[in-house]
């Protein structure tokens, strides 16, 4: 997914001279093609995220579309004020490509685990927050970003090579995608958790439980009408996110229903990262298990809401 995102920056740079790339201190060879073919629009600026976000703002004020890339925690926690003031108050078309949403950097510990990035980015006026489910969707997302006139936070997950998105569903920022319809329950998902939900729905189907998936690739602007129409006729809804339960997808859905359809609230359960920093290392999968984000817990949460 990360490679796809960066390949897209190159492709976008090739077709649009407004596109510039800004990295902090990424691995050797990143976007070498861009560096070779249009070096004047390739910037590797060092471990200086506060400056980088301000620099991106300055470039955007003059008509450029900067794509900024580094590890998610450094693009959010480190320079939150710059993101808020330089990008969001000015409402500039800067794209933040954030590596390692959720448990991707499990072995590196809690300083590198972006567990609350959606919550804090979602809190900022003007910011769009997007978490695609696979590399193909990342491609569709990235290629649609040129003319969005506001800042975008793009959360990269790690879901292996599996492709679950379908071209026919397209990609429109702020528009939910119903990946599968369901008659008993719905998983409301974001990022690579959509993959887990699809697997889980298959398991449930074997037991005769018909559960669908609505994929919220965009956390903000939140497609309220899309998600409500997807869940209003089922008996149980489980939100699934590789993110802390406070302030992310589940919260967004509860807020939406609280305002628009409080009658739906009681059938919603949330599955996500508990409200604490990680205490284990291991792998992304072992952390997900530790956090209780597995097919088993999804089945349990769904069946509990269905009264089974």
């Amino acid at each position: 997914m990360r490679k796809t995102a960066l390949d897209c920056v190159y492709k976008l740079g090739k077709i649009d001279e407004r596109v510039v790339f800004i990295g902090s201190d990424l691995g050797p060879g990143v976007l070498d093609k861009m560096k070779t073919e249009f070096p004047q629009r390739f910037f590797m600026e060092g471990v200086s995220e506060q400056y980088i976000v301000g620099m991106a703002a300055g470039l955007a004020m003059e008509g450029f579309i900067p794509y900024v890339n580094t590890i998610a925690t450094f693009l959010t926690r480190r320079c939150y004020e710059q993101v808020a003031v330089d990008l969001c108050i000015h409402d500039l078309p800067v794209r933040l490509i954030a590596n390692g949403g959720g448990g991707v950097y499990a072995p590196l510990g809690p300083t590198h685990l972006a567990i609350e990035d959606i919550a804090i980015m979602r809190a900022l006026p003007n910011m769009a927050v997007v978490a695609p489910c696979d590399a193909d969707e990342m491609n569709r997302l990235m290629m649609s970003t040129l003319d969005w006139p506001h800042p975008i936070y793009i959360r990269l997950g790690k879901g292996g090579d599996k492709i679950v998105s379908e071209e026919k569903n397209g990609f429109e920022l702020g528009k939910a995608i119903i990946m599968r319809s369901g008659t008993d329950g719905m998983f409301v998902t974001t990022g690579v958790m959509t993959q887990l939900a699809l697997e889980t729905a298959d398991l449930l189907k074997k037991d005769g439980v018909n559960v669908g998936i609505v994929h919220m690739h965009t956390l903000k602007p939140f497609d309220s009408s899309g998600v409500i129409s997807a869940i209003e006729n089922v008996r149980a809804v489980v939100t699934v996110e590789e993110h802390i339960v406070n302030g992310g997808l589940g919260s967004a859905l509860l807020e939406t229903c609280s305002e628009l359809r409080p009658d739906l609230l009681s059938k919603i359960a949330r599955v996500g990262i508990p409200d604490k920093f990680a205490t284990e290392y291991g792998s992304q999968n072992s952390l997900l298990k530790h956090w209780g984000i597995t097919s088993d817990t999804l089945v349990g949460a769904m069946m509990k809401k269905l009264g089974g």
Binding site: V20, Q40, R41, F43, Q50, Y51, I52, V53, G54, M55, A56, A57, G58, L59, A60, M61, E62, G63, F64, E81, Q82, V85, D86, I89, H90
Partner: peptide, 25 residues
């Protein structure tokens, strides 16, 4: 007014971006 400021330490990073933009253009 070129930039909304008030939180400190924002002007110079933005100005670097502006100066690079001038050069690119």
């Amino acid at each position: 007014v070129e930039a909304s400021t008030g939180a400190l330490g924002h002007g110079l990073p933005i100005a670097v971006g502006l100066a690079i933009a001038m050069r690119l253009q």
